[in-house]
Design a protein around this nucleic acid. Structure first.
Lengths: 188, 188
DNA sequence: CCAGTTTGTAAGCAACTGCTTACAACGCTA
DNA sequence: TAGCGTTGTAAGCAGTTGCTTACAAACTGG
């Protein structure tokens, strides 16, 4: 993993670039992350980034695709809301989930080619959430739930508003899930 | 207002810059808005922008301060949630409210000096919302409500997820307000 | 009418951006 | 070992960014 042991190993370099990009996009968003930063953190040369991924946009797509799928595959439908909430609420959570949301959030304002892949990830989350209600407008309600999770991540992790930012995750979870029940159970 | 009639009018130029900046920051966020764009839309010279506002950051502060206060002063506390929701849901709403939220959203990832002023605006919204409940953790619940509004704006206006993006505003309003009642009324 | 201040303009600077190119070092195969 | 595709490197290009400077034009007070 250190740079000494990785000489002439394309796969490892590729992975290192992907990892570095994943971290940086989550930390700073798309715009504020430069290809030089990514290459530096990966301990690789800038030019390799373009050789392997073509373009900064395409690198972003690769990152989002990898992280999003991974996290989604790991949680059961009825636990997705709780899991997503907890992962966004737990500051120590550097796992895939948190990073997927953070990336989504911090790059939400960038309307590059990556829009497509972002939408796709969102679709998969929403579709899963929609199975939790049998209201006729299930998809809309699922969108609203997702919006809430994202909003909480926004307020907590980026705007770092108090008291939300340092509130007890379980307490917040309770409040949101309770209110969400109202949203999901009312059948018009 | 046209450029012909405004020759040597510092106040008007300043206002035009402020207006142009307000629009552009709301449309594209802080990072993706250039000082050249702002000056162009205002029909003013770039250098004046720096003469009057000092720095791009400070211009942003001026914009956010002006818009946020203005909108907040215009709506009664108990109608703030509905108003904020409606203004974020109505695409034709080019008024101050919509713009304040959009600006907050699209520049959420930018951690420049403008962070302070953003936080301040957020505080004022949250404080108003907190008056709507008498729960001991009123501030936290207010933050959650605000997070939801912002999240909806994010999903609808930036990610443009369907079906939320083109859903009937009133219907969405009903769903959210209903669920919010649960959140605000439960006294633990 | 003339000095002095205010308002507007044009040009440019230094830093940074995504991306490219020319080339060296390496390792496999024949 | 000679040849050749793969991997890594250094330098740079063209465009954009925030911001500054030097200067012209307009207004104002004496």
């Amino acid at each position: 993993m250190t740079r000494e042991t990785r000489k002439r190993d394309a796969a490892a370099t590729k992975a290192a670039l992907l990892d570095a990009a994943s971290e940086l996009f989550a930390e700073r968003g798309f715009d504020r992350t430069t290809v030089r930063d990514i290459a530096d953190r990966a301990g690789a040369n800038q030019a390799l980034l373009f050789r392997y991924f073509g373009t900064k946009d395409q690198l972003f797509e690769a990152v989002v695709a990898r992280n999003g799928r991974q996290q989604l595959a790991e949680t059961a439908p009825e636990k997705l809301l709780g899991a997503a909430l907890r992962s966004i609420l737990d500051p120590s959570g550097t796992g895939g989930a948190h990073r997927a949301m953070a990336t989504y959030l911090r790059s939400a304002a960038s309307d590059s080619a990556s829009t497509a892949i972002r939408r796709q990830i969102g679709d998969e989350y929403a579709r899963t959430l929609a199975t939790l209600t049998d209201a006729p407008d299930a998809d809309l309600r699922a969108d609203l739930v997702m919006a809430w999770v994202l909003g909480i991540g926004l307020v907590r992790g980026i705007a770092t508003r108090e008291p939300l930012a340092s509130a007890d995750p379980e307490h917040v979870c309770d409040l949101v899930i309770e209110a969400t029940k109202t949203l999901l159970e009312r059948t018009e």
